[in-house]
Amino acid sequence: MAILVTPQTRVLVQGITGSFGARHTQLSLAYGTLVVAGVTPGKGGQVFEGKVPIFDTVSEAMQQTGATASAVFVPPPFAADAILEGVDAGLDLVICITEGIPVNDMVKVRRAMEGKKTRLIGPNCPGIVTPGLGLDSHGGCRIGISPGYIHKQGNIGVVSRSGTLTYEAVWQLTSRGVGQSTCVGIGGDPVNGTSHLDVIKLFNEDPETEGIILIGEIGGSAEEEAAAWIKANCRKPVAGFIAGATAPPGRRMGHAGAIVSGGSGTASAKIAAFRDAGIGIAATPSEMADTLLQLMKRA
């Protein structure tokens, strides 16, 4: 089953002709993902790599190809517009990879999305992977920029704000022969579409997911909110890691959302919330997979 996307999900790419979007579309196609359409305004009628038709608008691409999910690779000044175009067209899922979108643009996007059926993942995220059954997990659904080959199909759900830290956790699992149901990067911005908690709820309901790795970082209180819900509702073992214990207060650590301000959003508060919720805490980022596997053995 997995969550959010399956190998059958039909994907369109907004910004398919930009260098970044093109590169990762090629990688998704090579992974076996059903990339069925591209959207670049003004380039409708062209064909990407001889196989993916390009449309001027998202709604045309949807109508003609049956795409239900989109990857957004357009530059920051145009990203809010691209997201809302996908929402307006009625996509199930919009995954925005773009880094550097003005916060107030995202405030407006979130407001405009209220009451709409579309789920937004990101922005400033690595995307989502539901691994396939082939060699190096080939045949899965890869939307975004994650390396596909590090995955393996299986029963662990991974959710994280950070890209490379997600890869680290996934690789630890795969190296131990343990596969993943779905891996979701929710992004490092202060305003995003899908929270840790949203993804945890989906994993909790997914019959194929048996254990969860929850990776957080300093800033905001999304990890605390997820922990409170897990404590009361989650039926599955969860292991967690929080990055940024050594980060100085008041400084943004790369991600726009990774900042301790006014004494809130500290790693220690988040770790305490995890502990209180019975989440297994990885003492170092090297121990994310082992911490979960030990919890699962005990359960």
């Binding site: 950070s162 490379t164 830290l165 490092g188 940024g244 050594t246 980060a247 650590m253 170092t284 090297s286």
Partner: peptide, 16 residues
């Protein structure tokens, strides 16, 4: 380090 989350985690593990 490549990536903000991994960079923070690398600082943390040095201190650990």
């Amino acid at each position: 380090v490549n990536g903000a989350g991994l960079a923070m985690a690398t600082m943390d593990i040095i201190q650990h």
